[in-house]
Nucleic acid binder design. Structure first.
Ligand SMILES: [Zn+2]
Ligand SMILES: [Zn+2]
Ligand SMILES: [Zn+2]
Ligand SMILES: [Zn+2]
Lengths: 160, 160
DNA sequence: ATCGAAGCGTTATATTATATCAAGTCATCC
DNA sequence: GGATGACTTGATATAATATAACGCTTCGAT
């Protein structure tokens, strides 16, 4: 599992891999990757950045989809529930999963200057789970979001 | 540093300790713990739970404070910026810091059934920081929120 | 073909948060 | 003591994010 987000890369591959992974998982689990859900995932993969729900909604309605919020929130709920996308709580934004197919606890690195988001992972699940279990808390999902400065913004940084 | 949130405890002590810590930090750093800021922190300490901004605003306006959103958001901004309170992103809610005075990266354990929040800590700062640094990302702040079931709700749980 | 579950279109509304500008407060300097 | 400037507050308005509810359609299984 590698960190995705700051390096350059062949982007059509990202989209292809992401869509394929979603299709496979849906086929295997009997989930329906309907037109709207598919298109939202494509948008997130193509843009490769955290997008607000209303940004996506704007693109959808430009393309002839209905233009009401539930259209996009329903699609996002589906994608997030099934691990094809994640919500970045800090930004109230959504991003395609960079490690589709794998079961994982994502760690997001969020640049405070440009808001670029990279998805990586850290082996904290067990550490945290054990600590929580000691006080009787059963962890089911974990959100980890780290804010700071990405490599590019650090280069061009003037003041701290 | 201990986990705070699920066990029973003498609550007047929490409030006293929290207010004292805030007063000390403000005195030391030349910050102004004004009437509204003080009252919001008191409310958060007394309630000892994650509260929505508008919940707090309702209490403030009942007490004669102005009743516009900026009143409470400004106070919360101050408290969060100075470490006296934290924002729980997952809940869009705010909670008094359980470890005031210490510099720390809090870890929140959030019960999905009752929404009780406990603040604890995990030694993941260094692990995560090193991993990020390898790709040139400089972490400044980290949000960790774990959702699951608290001890009390696990006892009374019927279905999973 | 019928049935039930899941999905979608649509209207309306709820919830959370910020922009802006004028006025007040406080410490400091002279 | 008055001028200064930084910070704080009051107040109006609006932005941004998200959900409720209801009826219709589509899909897949029997
Ligand atoms: Zn992922
Ligand atoms: Zn950046
Ligand atoms: Zn804390
Ligand atoms: Zn609980």
């Amino acid at each position: 599992m590698q960190t995705v987000g700051f390096e350059n890369h062949d982007h059509t591959v990202c989209v292809g891999v992401g869509m394929k992974a979603a299709e496979d998982v849906c086929a295997a689990q009997g989930l329906r990757l309907t037109k709207g859900r598919r298109r939202v995932l494509e948008i997130l993969l193509q843009e490769h950045r955290a997008m607000g729900a209303y940004d996506i909604l704007g693109m959808l309605s430009d393309e002839g989809f209905a233009s009401q919020p539930p259209v996009v929130y329903r699609a996002l709920d589906f994608l997030v529930a099934n691990g094809f996308a994640h919500k970045i709580q800090k930004l109230n934004a959504y991003i395609a999963c960079a490690h589709p197919g794998d079961s994982h606890t994502p760690v997001f690195l969020i640049c405070r200057a440009c808001e670029t988001v990279a998805e990586t992972a850290a082996p904290l699940q067990s550490t945290l789970g054990e600590a929580a279990e000691k006080i009787g808390f059963k962890i089911e999902t974990t959100i980890v979001e780290a804010e700071g400065m990405c490599p590019r913004c650090r280069e061009t940084e003037t003041a701290v």
